[in-house]
Nucleic acid binder design. Structure first.
Lengths: 216, 216
DNA sequence: TTTTATTTGTTCACTGTTTCACAAACATTA
DNA sequence: TAATGTTTGTGAAACAGTGAACAAATAAAA
């Protein structure tokens, strides 16, 4: 039995749990209770227990959860692959920052190689082999499913090529709109939009408080 | 009347609309219908109409929405401030990439200045003035509400200082867990977690499809 | 071994979000 | 001006997610 029919909201919380659990494991913590974990991840104990229960009966009443076991189950059931092959498309400023950041072993795999249209960026100068964009189809690692996209031109065309190469998940840092077939999961990260969201929420909170104070 | 009591889910979609509308405006599009906009942003027309309706009766039956008016209302009602002052805390690889990216005028304001503990990073070498972290309280711009956090040490302490300086929104790139008082909005961005989420979703989709195919 | 204390897994009620479906409003054409 | 076609704005239904409460299960203590 594999994890199936897990609510989207829960799927989005799993990485949070996994991150906290790894840190606990590192610190030598062997067992944890939902209430305690709650204080680390800011998620209600009830929600934690329900989220975990989708993956089986992982805990013991009156005892809690075994950290090692929990991590093992997470990895197994959720298909975390420590050698998940990830490619980076676009070796600009952001791409280079990501390559430098590439200490993801034992968390989710690592960036295998990168691609860029600019041939002056090719080579191994950034710690990861950068190939010309022309060689995408040739150099993309076998079984690679995840691509990080940090380009700003020819986005749609590039996405089409990636999908043809078997990519099923894209972390999207472009500011462009593009289409991908169903079955390809896109996770867009846009600092500008994040800031806007923050501004909107801040303003919304503010006007709520004002309303409370003035009583109107 | 200001935007008030807007659902959180809606607030999170406003940046998406705004981005799409700006692009349409740039391309000379003057009017748009919810159905058409839907194809650009992958949100149901009905959801779009309801989201817009929180800000007033912006459209006209049988006609659609006026793009210019829509953008104007968004900016006004949501408090988008083109000179929203943003500070960057941490001038490492990622921080520098963001400074280089700092072309946000007419979208959401821009990074006014940055701070870093490492004095060798201080100065204007990256296009934005970088101050020593010691000078935070002194150099932080008046009225600054938003901070982008890209540090990896002393996170909690730094957050406390930022909050004391009046920061009410934090874009968080650290991989650490920290606490902030209510009223401070946090938007966490973690590439590793994003990749994991992607992997989980991809696997979840896969097992669903398999189940369908095998009929079991 | 029995009792007590603890913590899980899950049911139920509630709240928030999305979608359907349609009346009302307007643009457009004749 | 009247008739027609289109698209909004929204009430109400359906769906999804959250949190309180508690029975069942186990650990720990007596």
């Amino acid at each position: 039995m594999t994890a199936n029919n897990v609510p989207k909201a829960t799927l989005q919380r799993y990485p949070v749990y996994l991150k906290a659990l790894r840190r606990l494991q590192k610190n030598g913590v062997e067992r944890i209770m939902s209430k305690e974990l709650s204080s680390f991840v800011d998620i209600e104990p009830t929600t934690i227990r329900r989220d975990f229960s989708f993956l089986g009966n992982l805990g013991k009443q009156g005892y809690g959860y075994d950290v090692d076991k929990l991590i093992e189950i997470f990895n197994g059931q959720l298909g975390v692959n420590f050698d998940e092959k990830i490619i980076l498309v676009g070796a600009g400023n952001l791409g280079r920052a990501l390559m430098n950041y590439n200490k993801w072993d034992y968390v989710v795999g690592e960036i295998e190689c990168a691609f860029d249209v600019d041939k002056s960026k090719c080579g191994t100068q950034f710690g990861v082999e950068v190939y010309s964009m022309d060689l995408l189809e040739e150099k993309i690692p076998k079984g690679c499913r995840i691509a990080i996209l940090t380009i700003s031109h020819n986005v749609q065309e590039t996405v089409d090529r990636l999908v043809d190469c078997g990519i099923t998940g894209i972390v999207d840092f472009t500011h462009q709109h593009f289409l991908a077939p169903k079955g390809v999961v896109i996770k867009s990260i846009d600092v500008v939009s994040s800031i806007q969201e923050l501004v909107f929420m801040t303003n919304s909170l503010e006007s709520k408080t004002k309303k409370q104070k003035s009583g109107k």
